[in-house]
């Protein structure tokens, strides 16, 4: 067979085949030990120098073209023919991973945001002394302000131990053992002696923050909390401060943010007001600095508190706060 004849036949045959086996036979016919092109390439040695060069070039060029075409066709035919049917729509093998509780997810997110702002994450015990939980925070005994926190007291009464009603006591502990300046957040389980319903729990999770230094101002607080909400809700929310009262801060403020769900237009979540009440804050009261033996003339700072479950409910659309501690896997496995 001549080069021209090979050229005329081989490519058509390559395209015509429907199985890899057939294609192998075509390969064998032309490029095998006794193949047609092989014969020509072998016969080059008998030709003149002139012919060797020309025909050699042509033959090798053709060989390369045939090999390329074969490779392509092999690729297309892979797995076809006598092989079993392969259903790509068959379900993949289930990989079982567990699920973090959405409460953990929101805490992680909150912590990561504050860490990026230069805050450290600190923790403390749930069983606390009356001093750390109230007195040191400017909430003396027999003061009507105490009734703002319904408290679980432990037996025996004379020990004056309780389940902490906020994570602020950890701030007291921290200040007793550290010097300013610093920025900390304190996430943790807190308790209120309260009837539970879809929006109220007796055991829930707060994240409180404290920044103390020589020149930390309320304007600084506004910047921090604004940046936090924008990061958490991943949209441009506005914040609003208005007068509030907590004995351990003065001035004290309530913090509102524009509703992330309806973007201030009004919806069920924000009771059609366009705003959500999301936390409390203020400048640390000098009596608190006295209690931890800081000189109130040399330091100032702000403190704030937010409820973790509330944020998870807003972000993830969870309707009932009791789900977080229900242990119900139908809930947890969704996240």
């Amino acid at each position: 067979m001549t080069l021209q004849e090979i050229e005329q036949l081989v490519f058509a045959e390559i395209i015509r085949v429907t199985t890899a086996k057939e294609l192998e036979e075509v390969q064998h016919t032309y490029l095998g030990r006794k193949g047609h092109l092989t014969a020509i390439l072998r016969g080059l040695s008998t030709l003149s120098l002139e012919e060797k060069r020309t025909i050699g070039e042509q033959a090798n060029a053709l060989r390369v073209r045939i090999e390329t075409a074969l490779k392509e066709q092999f690729g297309k035919l892979e797995g076809k023919g006598e092989e079993k049917f392969f259903d790509i729509t068959f379900p993949g093998k289930k990989v079982v991973t567990g699920h973090l509780n959405p409460l953990t997810l929101i805490l992680r997110e909150i912590e990561d945001i504050f860490i990026s702002f230069g805050f450290s994450v600190v923790e403390g015990p749930e069983v606390e002394t009356e001093f750390n939980n109230f007195d040191a925070l400017n909430i003396p005994a027999n003061h009507p302000a105490r009734e703002m926190w319904d408290t679980f007291w432990l037996k025996p009464e004379n020990q004056k131990l309780l389940l902490r009603t906020h994570t602020s006591p950890v701030q007291i502990r921290y200040m007793m053992t550290h010097e300013p300046p610093f920025r900390i957040i304190v996430p943790g389980t807190t308790y209120r002696y309260e009837a539970t319903d879809a929006r109220h729990e007796m055991q829930f999770t707060q994240v409180e923050g404290l920044v103390v230094g020589k020149d930390v101002t309320l304007a600084n607080f506004k910047a921090v909390i604004e940046a936090f909400f924008i990061r958490l809700f991943a949209q441009k929310v506005e914040i609003r401060l208005r007068p509030g009262y907590f004995p351990f801060v003065e001035p004290g403020v309530e913090v509102d943010a524009t509703c992330p769900r309806c973007k201030k237009k009004g919806c069920e979540l924000c009771k059609f007001s366009g705003w959500l009440e999301l936390g409390g804050a203020g400048m640390v009261h000098p009596n608190v600095f006295d209690a931890v033996k800081y000189n109130p003339k040399e330091v100032q700072g702000f403190a704030f508190g937010i409820g973790a479950e509330r944020f998870a409910m807003i972000k993830y659309g969870i309707p009932d706060i009791r789900l977080f501690r229900s242990g119900d896997l139908r809930f947890i496995r969704q996240f």
């Binding site: 860490i115 994450v121 923790e123 101002t217 309320l218 401060l241 208005r242």
Partner: peptide, 27 residues
């Protein structure tokens, strides 16, 4: 400040960089 209005208060970023922020060992 409350009668002056909190709305006119302009946010001011904290000035110092904190180089020590981290989760405590236990958390």
């Amino acid at each position: 400040v409350r009668l002056h209005g909190y709305d006119t208060l302009e946010s001011k970023t904290l000035s110092r960089v904190s180089l020590h922020a981290k989760r405590d060992d236990h958390p």
